[in-house]
Simulated scan of single mutants.
Amino acid sequence: MGTEGDVIGRRIGAIIIDIVLIAIVSSVISGILAQVRLAFLGSLFGLVIGFGYYIYLEGTYGQTVGKMALDIVVVTEDGDPIEYGPAAIRTVLRIVDALPAFYLIGIVAVLVTDRKQRLGDIVADTVVVRAGETGSMR
């Protein structure tokens, strides 16, 4: 189908939406924990929320809230729905893709790869396409 290159702007928008949502939820939880003198757990919960958000939503639906809003979906390179394993791989490698700042490695990878994949996509054998355009991708 070759739609991977058509979603670069949508991917950036989805990342921004997702980061804002995670930051809001993490801030609320950190604030609550600070009130009960457990502020030291705030960072840990923020990390768990961030990882859990991506793994659960992409593993279950192939989309985060940001991807849903911008009508894109993560699928296998064959166009099938992804599962929790590839979702977890993509999520863990967000750490590398985000380096050194502002997802620079991920953006460069998307710009130079034929299927417009960031490092997490390459390792997990996934691509991001417009929703509804799944199916045989090879």
Rank of each mutant, 00 (worst) to 15 (best):
F40P: 08
I32T: 03
V112N: 12
M68Y: 06
A69V: 06
V92W: 08
R130C: 05
L44M: 13
V65S: 06
L93K: 07
G9T: 05
Y84G: 11
P86T: 10
I16T: 11
L99R: 00
G42C: 10
Y61K: 02
I22D: 08
V65K: 07
S136T: 07
E133Q: 15
A23R: 01
L111F: 14
I95K: 13
P81A: 00
V73N: 06
L93V: 09
V36T: 11
E4P: 03
K116G: 03
A14L: 07
V7T: 15
S26H: 00
L47S: 12
R130S: 09
T113L: 05
E77T: 05
T60M: 10
V7F: 11
F45W: 14
D78S: 11
L38I: 01
G120H: 05
T3L: 14
E4V: 03
G2E: 10
Y103F: 09
V129P: 00
G5S: 12
I82Q: 02
L38P: 00
K67Y: 13
L93G: 10
D97G: 14
V74G: 10
F51M: 13
V28Q: 05
I24G: 04
F45A: 15
I15T: 12
V96P: 00
T3M: 14
L33C: 11
V96H: 08
M137N: 06
T3W: 13
R115A: 04
D6H: 14
I29K: 10
E83L: 08
G13Y: 12
G135F: 09
G50L: 11
L47C: 12
V73R: 14
S43W: 13
L104H: 05
A69T: 07
I95D: 09
E77S: 08
T126M: 11
I55R: 05
I105M: 12
I122Y: 06
T76V: 04
T91M: 04
P81V: 01
T60A: 15
D125W: 07
I15C: 14
G79N: 05
D121P: 09
I122D: 04
V127W: 03
I49G: 02
P86I: 09
I15S: 15
A23N: 02
D78H: 07
A69I: 03
G135E: 04
D121S: 13
D80C: 03
G5H: 07
G5P: 01
Y56S: 11
A109G: 02
L38R: 10
I32H: 06
P81E: 01
R10N: 09
Y53M: 04
L21D: 01
T76E: 08
I82H: 01
F45M: 15
R11W: 10
F51R: 08
V73Y: 08
V112R: 11
G50Q: 10
L93I: 06
V73F: 04
D78M: 09
Q117D: 03
I8V: 15
I17N: 11
T91C: 09
G42M: 04
T126E: 08
T113C: 07
L99M: 15
I22F: 09
D121Q: 07
R11C: 05
R94E: 07
L38W: 04
